[in-house]
C-alpha cells in the first residue's frame, strides 16, 4: 500500500514538472526573438561588438506620431558612441538589419534589411538596401555553421582608465 502511494506521488511529481517548465517558455521565446547582435563595419568586413534587444517603445516618451513605423532597440551607451550606422543580425541569424543611433538607443531604418552576403562587402554603401526586401526578410544563403567558419571577430573594448572593470 505504502509503495503504491509513493509510486502515485512520484508519478504525480513527474507529470506535474513539465507543466511547470512550460510556464517559462513564453519568456524565453520573447527574449530569444527580441535579442539581436550588433555589428559595425570595419576594414575587411563586419565585426560583432555588442548585444541589443528590441523593445516596445516606452509609452509617454516615444510616440508613434513622431516616429511612425520605427522599431526600437535597446543597447549599452558605449556601443553607440560615435553615432555611426550599425547592423543588427536578425532573429533567423542570416540577415542584417540596418540600424541607426537614436538618442541613447538605436532604431531600425524602416523596411531596409540587408542579407549577410551583401553586408559583408566592404565597399557596400551603408544606406543601400537589398533588392526584393519589401515586405519581409530575405533568407540568406549562409547557415550558422558557415558563418562561424568565416570567423566572426569581436572587438573587445577596454578602458584602461578604469582597471576595476571591463566593458562587455
Amino acid at each position: 500500500m505504502v509503495r503504491r502511494v509513493l509510486l502515485a506521488l512520484l508519478l504525480s511529481l513527474v507529470l506535474a514538472l513539465p507543466a511547470g517548465a512550460e510556464a517559462k517558455w513564453p519568456l524565453w521565446s520573447v527574449l530569444d526573438a527580441a535579442s539581436v547582435q550588433l555589428y559595425v563595419k570595419e576594414f575587411g568586413g563586419l565585426a560583432a561588438i555588442c548585444s541589443a534587444g528590441q523593445i516596445v517603445a516606452p509609452p509617454g516618451v516615444v510616440t508613434a506620431a513622431v516616429y511612425p513605423g520605427v522599431e526600437f532597440y535597446l543597447t549599452a551607451g558605449h556601443c553607440t558612441l560615435d553615432n555611426s550606422v550599425r547592423y543588427a543580425i536578425t532573429r533567423d541569424g542570416l540577415n542584417f538589419v540596418e540600424v541607426k543611433v537614436l538618442a541613447t538607443g538605436i532604431s531600425r531604418i524602416g523596411g531596409e534589411v540587408r542579407p549577410r552576403e551583401v553586408a559583408q562587402e566592404p565597399s557596400d554603401r551603408a544606406t543601400r538596401s537589398a533588392a526584393g526586401q519589401q515586405g519581409g526578410l530575405r533568407r540568406g544563403r549562409l547557415d550558422a555553421a558557415s558563418r562561424a567558419a568565416e570567423g566572426r571577430r569581436v572587438r573587445h573594448t577596454r578602458r584602461s582608465a578604469d582597471e576595476d572593470r571591463h566593458i562587455c
Binding site: I49, C50, S51, G53, L74, H78, C79, C168
Partner: peptide, 12 residues
C-alpha cells in the same frame, strides 16, 4: 553571465 560582446544585453 557576461563576457565582451554581452554589452547591451537586455536584462529582464
Amino acid at each position: 553571465q557576461g563576457q565582451p560582446g554581452s554589452s547591451g544585453t537586455n536584462i529582464v
